[in-house]
Design a protein around this nucleic acid. Structure first.
Lengths: 134, 134
DNA sequence: GATAGTCCCTGTACCAAGTACAGGTTCAAG
DNA sequence: CTTGAACCTGTACTTGGTACAGGGACTATC
C-alpha cells in the first residue's frame, strides 16, 4: 500500500500519515527502490488505532502512552486507568464550558438588543467582574 | 505605567501584552527616551477588555471584532448578535464533548480492569467502530 | 522508448494564542 | 557610579495537523 491508499483506508489525511511517522507514532515503513513508502496491514491497523484514539479525544501524548502499552504488553487495569483519567479530563472540560456558558448567557441576558448605541455587555467587559476563568 | 505594571494590573502575562500589540489589538504606546513602553489608563482598560473577552471564550478574531465595534460605534443589537453567536459556539462544543464523554464512558464500561493481559478498550480501538468524531 | 498524468518525495511555512528565552539596553535606587 | 531589576528585540517552542513548492517515481498508453 502506498501512502495515499493508507490514508484513504484509515480515514486520515495523507499528510497526517507522514506527520505521525515523524512524531514516532507510526513506524517508518520499508521503501520502494525509488523511495516510496510501502505499507502493510499492520500499519493500517495501527493508524486506525491512532485515529480512533484521537476521535475519542486522547492527545497524541496519550496515544503514545496507549501504543507503548500495546507494544510492550499491558493489563486491562492499566488501560482502564488511562481511560478513566481521560474521561475525567473530558468531564472537567465540560464543567468548564458549562460555567462559561452560564456566565456568557447571564451577560447576554442583560442586553436588550436594538439600535441603542450602548450595551451592557460591552460595559461588563470593560468595567465589571465577569466571572472566573476556565 | 510600564509593561510589567500593566501586565500585573490587567492579569495578563507580560509577554502577552507585547503579543497583543503585535496582533494589533492593543495600540502601540508612546516610548520613553530609552525605548520603554509607557502605558496609561486607556491601555489598561482596553487590555482588561481583551482579557475578559478571552476569559469568556471569544477568539482573538472575535475580540478584534468587538474592539472594532467599540472603536467605531455600535448598537446593542450588534453586540448581542456576536454574543449569542459565540454562545451557540460554546453550546456546540459542550454538545460535542458530551457525545464524546458518552462514547468514552461506554467504552470504559466494557473494561473490567485487573491484571488480565487483554482489554476490550484496546480491542475497540483496533477493531471496532467507536462512534463519530467531534 | 517516449510521454503524460498521477502519485509521491523532501523540506518548509502556516494556523491559534500565547510562552519562553538569549543577548543586550535602560531605569531607578543607593 | 554601580548594581540589579525591569525592559528591549527577535526568535523558537507548543499542539495537531494542513498546505505548498519544486522535484522525482510509477504506470499506462502510444
Amino acid at each position: 500500500m502506498r501512502r495515499g491508499e493508507l490514508a484513504d483506508a484509515s480515514g486520515c489525511n495523507i499528510e497526517t500519515v507522514r506527520f505521525y511517522e515523524r512524531a514516532g507514532l507510526l513506524p517508518a515503513p520499508p521503501r520502494s527502490a525509488g523511495g516510496h513508502r510501502l505499507y502493510n496491514q499492520d500499519h493500517l491497523r495501527r493508524l486506525v488505532f491512532i485515529r480512533r484514539s484521537r476521535d475519542l479525544g486522547f492527545t497524541l501524548e496519550e496515544v503514545r502512552g496507549l501504543l507503548e502499552l500495546v507494544d510492550g504488553g499491558y493489563t486491562c487495569g492499566e488501560v482502564q486507568t488511562l481511560t478513566l483519567k481521560h474521561l475525567e479530563n473530558i468531564q472537567g472540560k465540560i464543567a468548564d464550558l458549562r460555567r462559561l456558558e452560564r456566565t456568557l448567557s447571564d451577560v447576554a441576558s442583560t442586553c436588550a438588543g436594538g439600535t441603542v448605541p450602548e450595551c451592557p455587555v460591552i460595559d461588563a467587559l470593560f468595567d465589571k467582574s465577569v466571572g472566573g476563568r476556565a
